[in-house]
Design a protein around this nucleic acid. Sequence first.
DNA 1: CAGTGGTCTAGACCACTTT
DNA 2: AAGTGGTCTAGACCACTGA
Lengths: 243, 243
Amino acid sequence: MITRNPSLTEQVKAHLKERIVGGDFEAGRIPSETELATDLGVSRTTIRDALSRLEHEGSIYRKQGAGTFVNEPGLQIKSRLEEIWSYEEVLRDHGYTPSVRVGEIQTEPAGDQLAAELKLEPGEPLVVFEKLFLENDLPVVLTTNRIPKRLVSVHIKAADGKKPLYELLEDHCGRFLSYYLSDIVPVALGNHESGQLAVARRTPSISFEEVGFDQDNEPVVKATSLFRDDLLRFRLIRRKAGA
Amino acid sequence: MITRNPSLTEQVKAHLKERIVGGDFEAGRIPSETELATDLGVSRTTIRDALSRLEHEGSIYRKQGAGTFVNEPGLQIKSRLEEIWSYEEVLRDHGYTPSVRVGEIQTEPAGDQLAAELKLEPGEPLVVFEKLFLENDLPVVLTTNRIPKRLVSVHIKAADGKKPLYELLEDHCGRFLSYYLSDIVPVALGNHESGQLAVARRTPSISFEEVGFDQDNEPVVKATSLFRDDLLRFRLIRRKAGA
DNA sequence: CAGTGGTCTAGACCACTTT
DNA sequence: AAGTGGTCTAGACCACTGA
């Protein structure tokens, strides 16, 4: 039962999360850290690590001197903006069973801005393709991915585009996606985008404009994503800095 | 030199942050955790706590077995979406020296949706007022705040609206703002909003629609905020969940 | 294989809330 | 006064990286 990977902390976190959503805790009160530690046979530090993660993602809150409690409003959050890793997962979290349509895989030279963002020489070729995520033929997310061609060691075919982006980068570039730096930009959808998303032209939308970095902190992809706000809405918890 | 409050961890974090932005670390390499611990005379745990926070906010990155390094792209982030606490601070972080204009303080009954979000009976009175944040007479942020009237123990005058919202809630309601739950919504600005922000009607904008909760996890305020995207843009770091 | 970060333990003391 | 979460320590062992 006690194994490495996932870590003890992760196991404890998952265990507690299950009991929280299962309503195991009377009146929203979670047992004290010492009690949990002895019950689960781990150190208080491990318990505290797990609780800290649950607190950070909004599932619980803690009051010094008082106790630890279930956070009902925080439990409502389906997809936390800071933890989006693939849009398929997001859609599944919303109860959808998404399908993916991949556009033509093209090669384009990088403009000045893209080159700077991806640490390339201007004009270096990029592999570019669109992905459309649908729920029951209803488009929800439209993303455009741009990968520097010189990172691609295994040729990308149309079918490969269906993989989650992090998987594609591992299989075809040998890079492991570590994090995204994202700008959140308001836009009015143009002709092409509104057509793909099946909404009126100039519909307001959020655009995520982001650069993905690999394990060595090298930029590996520039992605732009547009959303159907009526089908997918993002939430987020904001706290005081340093808490 | 060694004092409680701010905690040792916070002090170590601030110390390291200073050295990072000051370029003290040769080739972006930060000394090992053990070395930092003996140098600063604290335990490795404290060092690790401080480094974890710096990693989380994007200032550094760590590679198991290799070391800890300065994260140049992460250092560029001015205002991290998850840590916004007052728009005045955000504007100051962008190098502005903001001023605030407060609209008329009104009382309105809560509609069904607002009542549900703030855990009120429909029709209960709300104190409502607009705040416009400007840089040199140039409007940047427009927010509308709605506070349940029954929470207000000290009357709110127009001048009080200039205070940061968390301060106002402490002074006039005895509540301490703990966190916001925020929806990110794309909108096209209407007549009133575009006028206040001095942009064309139907300009696309981000709208933050958020509920603020106090130390006891009770909803205390509903706020809606609109932004001049050309003057203020939000960034965010996205990582795999559970990392 | 030496050195790094990742995980976990056991225990101490403090600040705060509740009774 | 008793019990809670918050901070910090010292030390152990593991997994991984890079020379």
